[in-house]
Design a binder for these strands. Sequence first.
DNA 1: CGTCTTTGATGAAACGTTTCAAATAGTGAG
DNA 2: CTCACTATTTGAAACGTTTCATCAAAGACG
Lengths: 348, 348
Amino acid sequence: MVTGSGTPSMKDVAAHARVSLGTVSNVLNRPELVSERTRKRVLAAIAELGFVRNESARQLRGGGSRTLAYVVLDAANPFFTDVARGVQDAADAAGLALFLCNSGEDQERQAAYLDLLEQQRVEGVLITPVDAADPRITALARRGTPVVIVDRAAGPEHCSVTVDDQLGGDLAVTHLLDSGHRRIAFVGGPRSIGQVGDRITGAERAIERAGAGELTVLETARLDVAQGRRAGERIAGLPAAHRPTAAFCANDLLALGLLQQMVRLGLRVPEDVAIVGYDDIEFAEAAAVPLTSVAQPRHRLGRTAAELLLAEARSPESHEHQQVMFAPELVVRASTRMGSAVRSTTVA
Amino acid sequence: MVTGSGTPSMKDVAAHARVSLGTVSNVLNRPELVSERTRKRVLAAIAELGFVRNESARQLRGGGSRTLAYVVLDAANPFFTDVARGVQDAADAAGLALFLCNSGEDQERQAAYLDLLEQQRVEGVLITPVDAADPRITALARRGTPVVIVDRAAGPEHCSVTVDDQLGGDLAVTHLLDSGHRRIAFVGGPRSIGQVGDRITGAERAIERAGAGELTVLETARLDVAQGRRAGERIAGLPAAHRPTAAFCANDLLALGLLQQMVRLGLRVPEDVAIVGYDDIEFAEAAAVPLTSVAQPRHRLGRTAAELLLAEARSPESHEHQQVMFAPELVVRASTRMGSAVRSTTVA
DNA sequence: CGTCTTTGATGAAACGTTTCAAATAGTGAG
DNA sequence: CTCACTATTTGAAACGTTTCATCAAAGACG
């Protein structure tokens, strides 16, 4: 039975319950100060009017926003959604709400989100930036909003959490070398992507350390399934004597495309070509030949990032920025397991 | 050169620029009213102090929030991320920012988000609810926040956008019947999920209309890859004479699991068993045998939902709720393409 | 040189909370 | 019956904007 015109305010509630404004506020914020009788009356009025607290006013007066945001590069990428889950868990534990913002790799949209979030006075911002060196981010932090960089290296003026991509490349190639492979292809690109470069560096490091094997880089234009298929064609087209016996792909999409093309062209995996992917996405295991892949501790990445953020938000003065780097892990499956009972394919 | 202690306010800017508060506001909101000279001075002061507008105060005073939110069931599900992209596009076009909120199928978290969003006075809420019949959602709408239900049917008190699952099931099974299959398995469950039930209904409808074929339902506990593998075992275990020659899976995850198991057990796809999935996820095409699947117009779903929301937000009085239902499309690929005869790729 | 306009700048009143000092009502002791 | 407390309730200030009615200054015009 709403009588007023717009949305009811605390003043309306107060009038309806024949009580002062302050009392309504007390019922909401410190109910133990209010007598049972009036508290009930106020709650009844709230229910009857359908009163909903105006967060803007509340926040304006004093309280923080109890909200944090994760500005993500690509909301459709499972990597980021897993990280987000980690963030969510930490936020839940701290009683904060999490907003996800999708920049979609668009610098402009990212900037718009950062502006909005700062204007909203969120407690803190997690971000996987479009451009790691965006000065706006540093400016945001300097003006007092805690910021943590996720999955990108950051200078000493920020906290950041990353995964060691060189180690990942090293693990993958060491595994292939241990399995007896000597002609190894790296599939991925463009090289200008920091992570691709690091994985190549790690791969080369492994070969150097082993003092055996050679790495051929097949650079791709993107990191998607179609490019993986094309790389597969190129590999299959080589004479068997020169053909790499193993491929290390910069991510699982490439690896799946490559695998698909191998199956199509009648090459067996892993007998003719062994494949290692990167990211250990959900479908790596579901592939026709389950895919060996380098797994990143995504959930942990997100949780740690959020914890760093909360620490900074809690004590901005004493906070010291940290750059945390996690180690990836190799998950071995059939795509590199020689002589396993699993048979490859008989497909039209 | 920040002199004050906390974050600077418009008052600080005004003092710094030796101008009145109102003038600073004018510079920000109606710059054409301010002379070139003072405008520059104010902008300089803003830059020097690092002033950032307090959105709470702005909103409190009058402006709307220029923000809308999509409360999603599972941010890791590509279906929802594609829908979200559609929403994002519509929001961008309207100059609104979009926040993604992940309920993670958790009723409580969903409720918390709804409360928060209402308190923030967002312009509107898009939601794929955990429980389609949650009274909180109706209450939210009744109190004046525009709400659109996404991918779930809604009563006449809400706008909603859905995809016709019965039609989807019909399309899939009609295609299989047309390809000559008579013993068809439906893989999916639990049946209590509305969409699963509808897809079965559609499948049965197709068989009834054709007056040929029979449908066996293999009910699963969940809609994931592992359950697909198990269904695969069951199907492969049947004597060839009784074995279904085709399987229609309630989603692509099941279909991929099934496909993987077929390959493992040496059954050929589609020669021994044809497979149709549902959702047309990114990996359907990347599978060892590219998967025929029922595609939903996800992007369009999101865009339409957002447009309905904006229409309601713009004119709450004259708005009439609409329940929009889109038609899915069958995407035919190798997993049902016998020999090389059939060429079609997309059928309405 | 007054009077009108136009242009720019100002000050104060909201917006809906929270907070806190002060007022009031109860209560048990003396 | 009064006092000293304690338990409740109240009223007003403050938070940072936007808006709007005024005000002041400066030309334009007769």
